[in-house]
Design a protein around this nucleic acid. Structure first.
Lengths: 329, 329
DNA sequence: CTGTTAGCGCATTCAA
DNA sequence: TTGAATGCGCTAACAG
């Protein structure tokens, strides 16, 4: 079967290609009769406009790029789910860029920006630098940050401060006083804000974060395991009665360390995680839920608006986390 | 910053656009001196060819489409991971199409096929019909089936028969005789093959699948829960001592039903799942592992070959599953 | 070796 | 209303 172009349609319907194009784009300036004829030709020939040709003429690709670090992580899968859902409504394709390191990040951003492979970009948890953001602005390519925040770009993020504060307060209300906090790397905004929240939570209850019970690592399972191990090495009297991890993965790692020591949750330690990834439900882990799917939906919504309006009204939206109580404390 | 085209580069370097194009495409027919000059211009102007224009001229998009049903499922995430990994090597973008129902499936296939938005398609667990496959062939768009099999199309799939057989034999070797099999819908090839494998496993050990212990449902957690519930409703003497589920999700559902009855795995029931999704590891579930990531990698590899060679040599590759022993039996 | 030109398939002028 | 011409940015074939 040969490919059928707008010329074939025009010939079949005995009109000019301009008319066919007008019909395709729902222009008013076509008589009902010719429109009819053209539509018939289109159906008859089973014609559908070529995306690239249209793109070249219109300077639009009809797709948006989504950049994620490590998309196999539950967190991003959930965000992507929201992205997909929203994308079903509007008619855009999803081009997925997976970024595992700085090099890949640069490479993909370069590619997207200069080759114009997409109409807009959703950057999820990428900690974009001001410089990178500026490049998008300069090249006039819509950009929306999800789970990240920068001036002068539309961003949608979660209130990490209040999530952490609430978790700590909950533990304290449960009667815990010696609470360990296993944080991620302080280089990320998330870790900084959560630490702030933790301190504020203690303060609100007339307590203070014990420095010996504060550990810093990564947001990973391995890191959680190691940090918990460190705590368990201390003499029992220095042990906390509760552990708050800055990510579910860390909490899961900590859980493992605890179980390997023959101890149990929640009997020996109360445990709270952060994110509410799917695993948390199965492991019955109390956690601070991030509105992941919603972030994805909202991100696409805003991005679509920016693409269409060609105007850069910056939207910065903060979402609230929610404490999900399960059996781990 | 204005967009810079091949004309700008040509002007800057004081050559024709043809020469610039040649440099871009690493043609031999350029003198070192002019090549130098052009490269300098490119760097100076920070030029990068426009993807759509190049695509239109070359009749290539530089991207492949991946169609998955419900990509949030662990299984597909793992396959996608393999796809990503392989895609890093070759220089193609990944366009993701999520298909939740028949309507979406048709819509997306139509779009891909006629609009030519991608250079080739990877269909994962889609149970493509012969008719659909034929459309790809007719329009000459490379197609590779992953976890599915059809004549005349490159397919890569897993030996479901041997996976199920091995699982059953393992349970029997463990001393179990009354083994329940919770299957998915027999409309899928996977379910059919696994049932065949189960029967063969019993036979090889001189036993037979007890019809009362065979249940058919969906590959979902809910279904597993319900099927197990049915079994537990029977009088104790009719209970199996082991349960083999055709998917990890079903196994997890069954596990839940078991625990809610105050019973335990593996003490009261031995349990084996299928797929080896990430959760299985955390729940310590013995399962039949599917080489998901490998399927993804292989699929892309084959697809890339088909795209480049423009020749349709059909590759059909069968991979072997592997029994992963954990604590659930 | 290099510049020029003709498509690629479509949208959009500009006349008619 | 409509058809023909022009351009989107690039590749490739064709002359020089």
């Amino acid at each position: 079967m040969k490919k059928v172009t707008i010329y074939d349609v025009a010939e079949w319907a005995d009109v000019g290609i301009g008319t066919v194009s007008r019909v395709l784009n729902n222009s008013e300036r076509v008589s009902d009769k010719t429109r009819e004829k053209v539509l018939e030709a289109i159906k008859e020939l089973n014609y559908q406009p070529n995306a690239m040709a249209r793109g070249l003429a219109l300077q639009k690709t009809g797709s948006i790029g989504v950049i994620v670090p490590c998309f196999t992580h539950h967190f991003f899968v959930e965000v992507l789910k929201g992205v997909q859902e929203e994308l079903q409504q509007i008619d855009l394709d999803l081009v997925l860029f997976n970024v595992e390191n700085k090099e890949q990040k640069d490479k993909h951003i370069d590619r997207i920006l200069k080759e114009r492979r997409v109409d807009g970009v959703l950057a999820i948890t990428l900690s974009m630098t001001k410089k990178e953001v500026k490049r998008f602005k300069d090249l006039n390519l819509p950009l929306v940050l999800v789970n990240d925040l920068q001036d002068e770009v539309s961003s949608i993020f979660v209130n990490d401060f209040s999530g952490a504060k609430e978790a700590i307060e909950y533990l304290i209300d449960l009667g815990h006083k010696k609470i360990a906090f296993l944080n991620g790397s302080l280089r990320s905004k998330q870790a900084k804000e959560r630490l702030r929240g933790v301190k504020a939570g203690f303060k609100a209850k007339g307590l203070k974060l014990d420095e010996n019970l504060y550990k810093e690592g990564q947001f990973t399972e391995e890191s959680g395991y190691k940090l918990m191990e460190q705590l368990l090495k201390e003499t029992k009297d220095r042990w906390p009665s509760a552990v708050f991890a800055a990510s579910d993965n860390q909490a899961i790692g900590a859980l493992q360390a605890i179980e390997e020591s023959g101890l149990k949750v929640p009997e020996d330690f109360a445990l709270i995680g952060y994110d509410n990834i799917e695993l948390a439900r199965y492991l019955k882990l109390t956690t601070v839920s991030q509105p992941m799917t919603k972030m994805g939906r909202l991100g696409v919504e805003i991005l679509a608006k920016e693409i269409n309006s060609k105007q850069l009204e910056v939207v910065q939206k903060e979402l609230e986390p929610e404490l999900i109580i399960r059996r781990s404390c």
